[in-house]
Simulated scan of single mutants.
Amino acid sequence: MPARRRVAGLLKLTILIVIIVAGNLLTKGIIDGLDMDIRPSNEPMLHQIIMISMVAYILLMAIPFVPGVEIGLALMMILGPKIVPLVYGATLISLCLAFMAGRLLPEKSITRFLREVRLVRAAAFLESFHGLGPEQRLARLMDISPRRWVPWLLKHRYLTLMLAINLPGNMVVGGGGGLALMAGMSRMFSIHRYIPMVAVAISPVPLFLLVFGNRIASWPI
Rank of each mutant, 00 (worst) to 15 (best):
residue 44 P to H: 01
residue 46 L to Y: 09
residue 46 L to C: 08
residue 48 Q to G: 10
residue 48 Q to M: 05
residue 48 Q to T: 14
residue 51 M to G: 07
residue 51 M to V: 15
residue 51 M to P: 02
residue 52 I to P: 00
residue 54 M to W: 02
residue 56 A to S: 14
residue 58 I to E: 09
residue 60 L to M: 11
residue 61 M to W: 02
residue 61 M to E: 12
residue 61 M to C: 12
residue 64 P to C: 15
residue 65 F to K: 08
residue 65 F to N: 15
residue 67 P to C: 14
residue 69 V to K: 07
residue 69 V to T: 15
residue 70 E to S: 14
residue 70 E to F: 12
residue 71 I to S: 08
residue 71 I to K: 07
residue 72 G to Y: 10
residue 72 G to M: 13
residue 73 L to K: 11
residue 73 L to S: 11
residue 75 L to V: 15
residue 75 L to H: 12
residue 75 L to D: 14
residue 75 L to Y: 14
residue 77 M to H: 09
residue 77 M to S: 14
residue 81 P to M: 12
residue 84 V to N: 08
residue 85 P to R: 10
residue 86 L to M: 13
residue 88 Y to C: 06
residue 89 G to A: 15
residue 90 A to L: 00
residue 90 A to G: 02
residue 91 T to R: 03
residue 92 L to V: 09
residue 92 L to Q: 00
residue 93 I to K: 00
residue 94 S to F: 11
residue 95 L to E: 07
residue 97 L to T: 10
residue 99 F to E: 04
residue 101 A to F: 10
residue 104 L to F: 07
residue 104 L to M: 13
residue 106 P to V: 01
residue 106 P to H: 03
residue 107 E to N: 03
residue 108 K to I: 11
residue 109 S to Q: 09
residue 109 S to Y: 00
residue 109 S to H: 00
residue 109 S to E: 12
residue 112 R to F: 12
residue 112 R to H: 15
residue 112 R to N: 15
residue 113 F to Q: 15
residue 113 F to R: 12
residue 115 R to W: 07
residue 117 V to M: 12
residue 117 V to C: 12
residue 118 R to W: 07
residue 118 R to I: 07
residue 120 V to H: 15
residue 122 A to H: 13
residue 122 A to M: 12
residue 123 A to C: 12
residue 127 E to V: 02
residue 127 E to D: 15
residue 130 H to K: 06
residue 131 G to M: 00
residue 132 L to Q: 03
residue 132 L to W: 02
residue 133 G to W: 06
residue 134 P to M: 06
residue 134 P to K: 13
residue 134 P to L: 01
residue 134 P to C: 04
residue 135 E to M: 05
residue 135 E to K: 03
residue 137 R to P: 05
residue 138 L to E: 10
residue 138 L to H: 01
residue 138 L to D: 00
residue 140 R to T: 09
residue 143 D to V: 08
residue 145 S to H: 06
residue 146 P to L: 04
residue 148 R to T: 13
residue 149 W to K: 03
residue 152 W to V: 03
residue 154 L to A: 00
residue 156 H to G: 06
residue 157 R to A: 01
residue 158 Y to G: 04
residue 158 Y to M: 01
residue 158 Y to E: 07
residue 161 L to P: 03
residue 161 L to I: 02
residue 162 M to D: 05
residue 162 M to A: 09
residue 162 M to T: 02
residue 163 L to F: 06
residue 164 A to I: 03
residue 164 A to G: 08
residue 166 N to I: 06
residue 166 N to V: 01
residue 168 P to T: 08
residue 168 P to L: 02
residue 169 G to C: 05
residue 169 G to Q: 07
residue 170 N to L: 04
residue 170 N to D: 05
residue 170 N to I: 01
residue 174 G to I: 01
residue 174 G to W: 00
residue 175 G to S: 08
residue 175 G to Q: 06
residue 176 G to E: 04
residue 177 G to I: 09
residue 178 G to T: 04
residue 178 G to I: 06
residue 178 G to A: 13
residue 179 L to F: 11
residue 179 L to P: 09
residue 180 A to K: 05
residue 181 L to E: 06
residue 184 G to D: 12
